[in-house]
Write a protein that binds this DNA or RNA. Structure first.
Lengths: 370, 370
DNA sequence: TTGTAGGCGTTATCAG
DNA sequence: CTGATAACGCCTACAA
């Protein structure tokens, strides 16, 4: 049926071992022999069986990149940067030979839809395939399968797969990783976190300094870590200025998408018409908020100031251009890629924090004199 | 080291064959035996080796989705929809048993950056892994590796992998597929094309009917099929109104991104200050065009009308909201997913065309009286 | 430099 | 229903 190494060997008049050596280039082979083999490969249109190879060599060149939503540029940028770095090659250990031309590995991005079950499913599949590495991006859902996921990640790492968490809190230290070392022949789980708390706090402080006193907040889904952290940052700022009580109830939850922002803004406006500013869960949500405001005849930032988060590419083109916190998504993705390839390591404790930068544009201004 | 089927078998006091049967659930096994086996699997935290399985069973549950750029929502939406459909399960042939919980297959999206070499690399890797299916999205580069890619696709299909082209022209009929049947035990290569030509023509006609006579065009990269088709549609409309000569030279090429649109618009403006409308390669490019216009003190649509293409989610939030052609990306992706799972077939000849729909919003208006 | 042979972890085919 | 025992296609000591 399909042509195998043996077929190629037969046609080239050599042993299958020789063909293997030619293909992997990790053993000396006489030039003329090599040529004969390569010609046979061409003639037969031979394609190595990756599964057989992985089985025999006990190594794989698959790296999984799990994201909440590929359709969301936030993850798209992260994934794209990671992918480029992974494909680049130059792995720390197994330098030189590797399946992919160029020496790099094959990054496959898996769309989890933010569902813990889907994450688990993909993690299992990747484990089955004995993936070389896994990057898990995006906020985790608190509760439900947290333990199961942590468990699976720990096992993946223990079995030699390199695991990187990006934009998600580090795993709680398990029984094995109390010391500085790695758990028994495995790799440590590395973490690249985003400073969501700090970023959110900057945003709200900016608003308060501008003179705002009644600030609403459109948060993400309740059960996600990112939501909680951004909310904490917001509340920290509020508390620092003694505004906790005044704005405490002005929070509406929703998804990280435009329509949620739209809906939540209307809800907030109904609840508190005196609002002068709204902090959105992210840029996409902010767009929805602005649309809702406009529909009510409110101008941004004249009547209401609005902030985003992430600084996605479109934010500068929005009208008005969004005041937001820039997360270096591209760099973070690239760094995660390098980490998973073992080409770089996290400084200490396996946890690095990526800072956000306040970007002030046109969607925020002092509240109107009233 | 890692626990295998044999380990589980030993612990459960059965043969490895029995364990395999329990795990796959495709053969009758006594209840108490099954339980014992499952307990052993739990205890040992056993994870099947996907490679060994794929090797022995000669089947894989990997489906590759190749995209030009994950960071671009156009592809993100396509990939996300396809992924959902692929994970859903319910494969035509191998119903019931399948590696992934839920019966579906594992969709992995591969970022090619639009480079033919990267496409080839991924295709090769997928072929190596004996992928169950491949969806290739986005425009093809004309020239260079076209033949190599077509060849590889044909071979993939011939070897049983289901191949779907989405948003890309069909493969030239090879020597084998002249008849209606499939090439010798393989699958046909199915195509889901977008009506780029028709969409572009509608856009330009809309502009002309509005009264525009000097229409510029910011096209995509010269060598891509999508670019060529959209340009053809544009020129068809121009020709239909006898405007071909007048606007013939008003075309600037660039990438499908914002900054290219920005640069190209300035170039066009310098070349022809009398321009009253600009047709952009897609929505993202249109955003750049609008930004450039604004920097020159030109208002959209009062001074210059602008159109996009694709109708990505952000287009309705742009200022002014973009007049564009909506491509049903989500549906197309889902359909491609169903096709690659063999759950649906293309009507006739393996080629289906997806129509775009003209969406008129605020970025176009009649030219100013001058 | 090249060939031989054993093994990687599963599935599938036969008996029992 | 369950247990041996061949494949599956490739890699890699070990020999020559």
């Amino acid at each position: 049926m399909t042509t195998t190494l043996a077929d190629v060997a037969a046609r080239a008049g050599v042993s299958s071992a020789t063909v293997s050596r030619v293909l992997n280039g990790n053993y000396p082979v006489a030039d003329h022999t090599r040529e004969r083999v390569l010609r046979a490969v061409e003639d037969l249109e031979y394609v190595v069986n990756g599964n057989a190879r992985a089985l025999a060599a006990a190594t794989s060149d698959l790296v999984g990149v799990l994201v909440n939503d590929v359709a969301d540029p936030f993850f798209g940028i992260l994934a794209s940067a990671a992918q480029a770095e992974i494909a680049r090659g130059g792995d720390a250990d197994e330098q030189g030979r590797a399946g992919a031309p160029g020496g790099g590995k094959l990054a496959v991005v898996c769309n989890t839809g933010g569902s813990p079950e889907a994450e688990l499913t993909y993690l299992t599949l990747l484990h089955r395939q004995r993936a070389a590495g896994v990057i898990l991006t995006g906020s985790a859902v608190e509760g439900s399968d947290t333990d199961a996921i942590a468990d699976r990640l720990a096992r993946l790492a223990a079995s030699g797969t390199r695991v990187v968490l990006c934009g998600r809190p580090p795993l709680p230290a398990g029984p094995f990783e109390e010391g500085a070392g790695e758990p028994e022949g495995g790799n440590p789980v590395m973490t690249l976190g985003f400073d969501n708390r700090g970023g959110a706090e900057q945003l709200t402080r900016h608003l308060i300094r501008l003179g705002h006193r009644r600030i609403g907040c459109v948060a993400g889904p309740v059960d996600r870590t990112t939501t909680r952290h951004r909310l904490e940052g917001h509340r920290n700022a509020l508390a620092a200025y003694g505004l906790a009580r005044e704005c405490g109830g002005l929070t509406a939850y929703g998804y990280y998408d435009r329509s949620s922002g739209h809906r939540a803004a209307r809800e907030l406006l109904d609840r508190c018409p005196g609002l002068t500013a709204i902090v959105a869960a992210n840029d996409t949500v902010a767009l929805g908020v602005i649309a809702a405001l406009r529909e009510r005849g409110l101008q941004v930032p004249r009547d209401v100031s609005v902030t985003g988060f992430d600084d996605l590419p479109f934010s500068v083109d929005a009208t008005p251009a969004l005041t937001t916190v820039r997360l270096p998504l591209h760099e973070a993705g690239a760094r995660a890629g390098r980490l998973v390839m073992g080409r770089e390591t996290t400084p200490g404790g396996g946890v690095a924090l990526v800072e956000g930068e306040l970007v002030i544009r046109e969607s925020t201004a002092p509240p109107r004199e009233s």
